[in-house]
């Protein structure tokens, strides 16, 4: 066989083998990975609101909601009897999309902000991982963009104010 053909054939065969093995293993671990991610998210929400929240669709405690078109989306948690609601927000940071939760007291004050998922550069994006002095600064109402993570922090600040601004507390908790 000519060398070029031989090289191409060897690389193609090995790539096919690697792709097959990876596709198979990704399928094997898919469910476990998804439930791990959800569990981690529930843990953060539990810590934020102090009550047990559940996965799935339906009741007000549930963190997923089915939209009219059948797709799942993050649900706001309406916990009026506890004196708070948890708003869900999303946005695009420096490294990709992120999702967050904002706990709001019924008087409109921010009780806490948690980032549930993000793809920011490790190190620079650490301000989004709890415990985070920067995320805590939202509760004091005095938030500034972080040097070195300007795009990340401004995107999170915008997402939080979008979530808060779209919310009518008097309608959620009459």
């Amino acid at each position: 066989m000519r060398p070029l053909l031989r090289n191409v054939a060897a690389l193609a065969a090995l790539t096919l083998l690697a792709g097959t093995v990876l596709a198979w293993f990704a399928q094997v671990t898919e469910d476990e990975v998804a439930s791990n991610r959800l569990e981690a998210e529930l843990r953060i929400l539990r810590e934020l609101v102090g009550v047990e929240v559940g996965a799935g669709v339906g009741a007000p405690w549930r963190v997923r909601q089915r939209r009219a078109d059948g797709a799942l989306r993050d649900a706001d948690l309406v916990l009026c009897e506890r004196g708070l609601v948890v708003l869900r927000g999303a946005g695009d940071g420096y490294g990709g999309g992120f999702r967050l939760a904002v706990a709001l007291n019924l008087d409109g004050a921010i009780k806490g902000v948690r980032v549930l998922e993000h793809a920011e550069t490790p190190g620079f994006g650490d301000i989004l991982n709890t415990p985070s002095e920067w995320l805590d600064s939202f509760t004091r109402g005095d938030v500034h963009a972080v040097t070195g993570a300007t795009i990340t922090s401004e995107a999170v600040m915008a997402a939080v104010s979008r979530a808060v601004n779209r919310t009518r507390l008097d309608e959620m908790c009459p």
Binding site: L22, F25, A26, T29, E32, V33, E39
Partner: peptide, 30 residues
Amino acid sequence: IPEDVRLPCFVLVIATFTTLVNLAMEAYAF
């Protein structure tokens, strides 16, 4: 493995094993 393309082949195999370990860790040691 042909001599000329041995490095891409090595890296491909190493990358595959790395991804497998990464997936296994994400699933079973989160």
